[in-house]
Design a binder for these strands. Structure first.
Lengths: 195, 195, 195, 195
DNA sequence: AATGAATGAGCCTTCATTCAT
DNA sequence: GATGAATGAAGGCTCATTCAT
């Protein structure tokens, strides 16, 4: 639609912020427009619909996420190092796309049902494959414990990372790398003192 | 309003299920009514409003949760045993109030702003005090590691547990106690093999 | 419907009071039932509908009003004495049927359109004939001024009387007869000091 | 909300007409919209709510009324001349704001209870003060009779004037000034022939 | 006579979307 | 690129009314 991708990005950033703060359904097009300093109808010069804004926010985020993940997975690291790199990369994405991540967390469950958001299901599957595969490799290589249910472990690590988007605020004391280090330390070694 | 706590509970259970599945805002009163087998307007014989249904669902859940928590906290256990008991109790609540927990996870952030849901903020504060206090006791007693950011640890444990409500299905292979055991094992000892 | 005209009258009195206080449309059947100490549905054992309650209230009142008016009109009084008697009778009716009069004032304009309330139009016509006729007789007999628009005079006297129902409270200092005397004094002789 | 006082006034005029004809409660937003030639929802582009339309209609009317009244009261006239000027001004307002006056008559009693319509109570009080004060001045100056209950006289004059809005039709034979003259003649000198 | 529960129609309001200017 | 005004569908809620018990 628009010629200027400049304005587009601005508007999407605003929309993402509002979606993240109030939820997609509870966000009215007018609230976005107010925040962006124009009238509700005017947004339709730039975007087809409210849903297409959401679409563009999520797909942009996922594209960037997979750029990072694919680089890690292609690097030929050992299982423990792979997990470390994926976690660190994830916290970096949370740092850069906090709003998009928060939206993803809250809305993806409903959205996967819509044909338009098919790519969410694809991404989730690819995601699961990457993480589960790495964990299995790690168990086989005696890097990770063999006595745990591996799906439970997968969910545990996955949730641990992404749920952080709900409270993380960029520029708030901890860098993404520092948070990643602490999380990895807990996940890998536990919080109990070794005896 | 009316007495007949029988029908009330039935309707609330239905409402909770629909709220959990589609989100509070996206849930129409008619969807609840359809599911319950009556007309939308008829729900208002039993409840004041859609919001009051949500209110009753959440407050009932929190009341029961705190009954369990308070018993644990009053038992005079050591810090590690307290954490173990709280986690186990939490998974039991997820098992019994899955829908309410899922709703709580998704909606409480917006709801705390409403005066009517003040008790959510109260509960969160009490919750934080209980968990943070136990963790601090544990660090002081050399049961938990001292090199971790304690607030980060708190969020880590808290979120790890409750996010489980998003994928947990009662009667699905693992009992709540079994899940609690595995989660505790990961959180306390880590997933890496000890060297 | 009911066998006991006792209960019927009680319920109608309650209904009239609520209709008068809040207006017919703004009055819910439940408000009446609450006031009467039963449930909304139970009123339908005694009455066909909300409208039929209104109907019975108004027709009962008009029946009594015309009993009094007809007696006056049949007495063969002079025009001035007839006006005096009609005004006095009107205030007596306001005293005895305050609620019904208030309802009549507020609602009759809309109700005349409904076939069921045809008798309101009939009554109004008969009313106008009686008053206008008396005034005309009075002008012819040089009892009333000839320089005034007679329809205007009619409306003036009519409204002067009936609008009192909006503020009149039975047992409040002035008896109906006393109020009638003062009103008649103003209407007949004016409020200005004679020079 | 919006600017364009043009359209606003049109729509308010339509709304006032419908409110006056059917009563506020019995008037549906759709009826107003139909009359105005748009859809019900479209009214909310111009107004916050049905109640805010009513508010604006009444406050606009009262503002204009008090402009006129205040001018009269500040003119330093004698009591009789003040009453004459107030009555004349009142009929002029009825002529210009017939619908608003009719609404005021029918609804103000319920509305004063609402905080939003506090100004109705204020106006009523100011109104009573102006009229009662003038009547008292007149009694003291021997312009008005001293043998009448002054509050009764006040209500009598007040209601007599305003109730005219229920039957007055602009452009119907009598000008507001002509009606005022006749009313004043009746109120001041009575309808009886002097003997 | 009255209750408890439900119906069904309608109401006020919201909101994504459209479009002439 | 944006505004102002409107559409139309849907949503939460109210209420007169019904009826088996």
């Amino acid at each position: 639609m628009t010629a200027s991708p400049e304005r587009r990005r601005e508007l999407l950033a605003t929309a993402a912020e509002v979606f993240a703060a109030h939820g997609y359904n509870a966000t009215t097009v007018r609230k976005i427009a107010d925040e962006a300093g124009l009238l509700a109808g005017s947004l339709y010069y730039h975007f087809d619909s409210k849903e297409s804004m959401l679409d563009e926010i999520l797909s942009t985020f996922l594209d960037e996420l997979w750029e990072g993940y694919d680089a890690v997975l292609a690097a030929g690291l050992g299982p423990r190092e792979t997990i470390e790199a994926l976690v660190t990369e994830s916290f970096r994405e949370i740092d850069r796309h906090r709003a998009a991540v928060a939206i993803y967390q809250k809305e993806s469950k409903h959205l996967v049902a819509l044909p338009r958001f098919q790519y969410l299901a694809d991404s989730q599957q690819k995601f699961e494959k990457a993480w589960l595969g790495t964990l299995e490799r790690g168990v086989a290589a005696h890097a990770f414990r063999a006595d745990l249910d591996i799906r439970l472990t997968y969910r545990f690590v996955r949730d641990t990372v992404w749920v952080a988007a709900s409270w993380y605020r960029p520029g708030g004391g901890h860098s993404p790398e520092e948070i990643a280090r602490q999380y990895l330390s807990m996940v890998l070694d536990g919080i109990a003192v070794r005896t």
